[in-house]
């Protein structure tokens, strides 16, 4: 896979340079572990006693505290750990209680949310157990896991992106790319 980096138009306009200027560009091969999760990737635990193991619904307790997971390319065995933007937090929820918008992205109740807060990019690792809310340790943004990680508290401007999942021979695989932009958006 290759990726071409160019200066965006907005940067040029900001610099007052307009169009018609030659901008040096260079291509390079992006390491496969840096690429975002791809459809068909396996999902494996990232840390804990099952680290590296493929995720099956029975390895997750209902409404358990979300744990970290990463995608893994089954063809090359590449773990996509080259960017923190690739990390997701997974748990298992009651499919009958998922919001209609969230339900298609879960597999047997297993749901994966981007681990990166949309406020300033911190890892959303905390869990408010009695309210079933993911919580960011940096600025107390709270996300409702049954409702697409909608923001129910704190400064986050938008929900966490969902990584759609499906089941393949009983194991969880990535069904599609993230549903939205991962991480925070630089202002100005």
């Amino acid at each position: 896979m290759t990726n071409r980096t160019t200066l965006d138009r907005r940067a040029l306009l900001k610099a007052g340079l307009g169009v018609g200027i030659a901008i040096p560009t260079k291509s390079w091969a992006q390491p496969p572990n840096r690429a975002r999760p791809q459809p068909g990737d396996w999902l494996v635990f990232d840390g804990g006693e099952n680290s590296g193991q493929r995720i099956t619904p029975d390895l997750l307790a209902l409404e358990q505290r979300p744990v970290a997971a990463l995608a893994k390319d089954p063809a090359t065995s590449t773990l996509r750990d080259g960017s923190r933007l690739n990390r997701v937090m997974i748990t298992r929820l009651d499919p009958t209680k998922l919001s209609e918008a969230t339900k298609p992205h879960a597999a047997a109740g297993v749901i994966a949310f981007s681990a990166v807060c949309t406020h300033t990019g911190c890892d959303v690792i905390n869990w408010v157990e009695d309210k079933l809310l993911m919580a960011c340790p940096c600025h107390e943004s709270h996300f409702d896991v049954y409702n697409g990680a909608n923001v129910v508290g704190g400064p986050a401007p938008r929900p966490l992106a969902i990584l759609p999942l499906s089941l393949e021979s009983g194991s969880v695989v990535v069904a599609a790319g993230f549903t939205g932009r991962v991480g925070f958006t630089q202002q100005f």
Binding site: G121, C138, F184
Partner: peptide, 14 residues
């Protein structure tokens, strides 16, 4: 001066 910050930056204290 405007700095372009990396997408994967996390800011505990912005």
């Amino acid at each position: 001066y405007v700095r372009y910050l990396p997408d994967d930056l996390q800011q505990f204290h912005p």
